[in-house]
Simulated scan of single mutants.
Amino acid sequence: MVQQEVLDKAFAALADATRRDILTRLGEGPATISQLAEPAGITLTGMKKHVQVLEDAGLVVSEKVGRARQCRLGTERLDDAMAWIGFYQRLWERRLDGLDAYFTLRKGTQK
Rank of each mutant, 00 (worst) to 15 (best):
I85D: 06
Q52D: 02
E63K: 14
K64T: 15
G66Y: 09
V51A: 13
D21I: 03
F11T: 11
I33Q: 12
S62L: 09
A12P: 00
F103S: 05
D56G: 13
Y88R: 06
A15G: 12
M1Y: 11
L36P: 03
L44M: 04
L26A: 10
G108F: 03
M47Y: 08
A37L: 11
H50D: 13
A31G: 13
M47S: 10
G66S: 09
D100R: 12
A12G: 00
K107V: 01
R94G: 03
P30F: 04
F87A: 04
R106T: 07
R95N: 09
L73C: 03
V51I: 14
L26E: 11
L105N: 07
G29P: 09
L26Y: 06
K111G: 14
E5Q: 08
E76R: 10
C71A: 14
A68Y: 04
G108L: 12
K111E: 02
E93H: 11
L7N: 04
L78Y: 02
R72T: 11
G58Q: 04
L26W: 10
K48N: 14
A83I: 04
L44P: 00
A40C: 06
A57S: 07
T109H: 08
Q4P: 03
T75P: 13
A13D: 07
D21C: 00
A40K: 08
D80N: 07
Q89A: 08
E93D: 08
E76Y: 03
K107T: 13
D97C: 01
E5F: 02
Q4A: 11
D97F: 02
G86N: 14
S34Q: 12
F103K: 04
K48V: 09
E38T: 15
V65W: 00
R94E: 12
V51M: 15
R67Q: 13
Y88E: 06
W92G: 01
M47F: 08
T43D: 10
V2C: 01
K107H: 14
A81P: 02
